[in-house]
Amino acid sequence: MLEARLPSAVTLKKIIDAVKELVQDANFDCNDSGIALQAMDSSHVALVALLMRAEGFDPYRCDRNIALGINFATLAKVMKCAGNDDNLTIKAGEDADVLSLMFESTNSDRISEFDIKLMDVDADHLGIPETDYSATIKMPSAEFQRICRDLSVMSETVTIEAVKDAVKFIASGDTGSGSITVKPNQAVDKKDMEVTVTLQEPVKLAFSLKYLNHFAKASTLAGSVTLSLSDDVPLMI
């Protein structure tokens, strides 16, 4: 039996909005520590790893481990029906075949209830191996989203070059090329506006902007984003 109540639906709305572009059908693995999602996109190029800790819900109850097979396009449509400030309760009974979602407006004058059919998703057991990255860049997430959007006008591929005191995003295509250089700015007043480049050794790697733009949709969830890069391993965002 799972019953979890989120004080404001906006958090789950943003999460689903960011993930739905990448993940078709996947399991929400629920246990007493929270709700986890580990899933790849259909072409197995990107992995989404998400953990919604039990502490973020109030109350949170999960009697035994349960895997909820969900079609994320359907869940995204249902989440569109929730107001940002509604409180949201998700429920799934023993051997449930539906996930129930309830949105309650702040003054409880409107209660919406949706059931979405659960499906059997045979999931590969996935995880991100512990990696000691050559370069780790921390920067404002909105700025990263802006860079990915801006450089998409020039190319489908962006080269990220991390050197001692700067990170450079370069895109070159048939029509021309563009580059954006971001420099560290320690000691800023707002933590989220900080830019730091931690370097074990310089790296210069190319990535698909299609996927980076999908990942950047999660920018509204956190003010700061960390990019971790090393040769021959996937970029971690």
Partner: peptide, 14 residues
């Protein structure tokens, strides 16, 4: 650029 290689084996838990 071009087609991306599958990362399933990289992320698959042994």
């Amino acid at each position: 650029g071009g087609e991306q290689k599958s990362l399933l084996s990289f992320f698959a838990r042994k």
